[in-house]
């Protein structure tokens, strides 16, 4: 496991998770996301959870199709990850916390 801690030490991470109500998938995604962040981005991340059931307009505005969707707003470029993040390997690759071999 070769994380890129050295380069991104000072980087601030802004993550936004889109969910639609309290579905098992949403709950799992929140849990998995927190776990990944604690492991790799301890102390330098922010998570915003958007419930599209409460604010469905955002789905169109933010081009959300799949639920749950995780968007890495910072650092740029913006990355989109879908799914409940149960596949940690892929989640790390998607967030560019790990290089794809």
């Amino acid at each position: 496991m070769s994380t890129r801690k050295s380069e991104g030490q000072e980087e601030k991470w802004e993550l936004r998770l889109y969910t639609a109500g309290q579905t098992p998938k949403s709950l799992a995604a929140v849990k998995n996301l927190r776990k990944v962040c604690e492991e790799h981005l301890a102390g330098r991340y922010e998570i915003e959870i958007v419930d599209l059931l409460k604010n469905p307009r955002l789905a169109k505005d933010h081009q959300i199709v799949a639920i749950p969707t995780l968007v890495r707003k910072l650092p740029v470029p913006i990355r989109k990850i879908i799914g409940d993040l149960s596949d940690t390997e892929r989640a790390l690759v998607g967030l560019q916390l790990k290089q794809l071999r």
Binding site: Y18, A20, K25, A28, A29, N32, L52, L53, P56, R57, A59, K60, I64, V65, A66, I67, P68, T69, R79, K80, I81, I82, G83, D84, L85, S86, D87, T88, R90, A91, V93, G94
Partner: peptide, 21 residues
């Protein structure tokens, strides 16, 4: 190319958008 799939998901977003429209 912009999307990484990491586990289970559905297309609820699509439904929400369509429903709202």
């Amino acid at each position: 190319s912009e999307i990484e799939e990491t586990g289970e998901y559905d297309l609820e977003g699509l439904f929400l958008r369509l429903g709202l429209a």
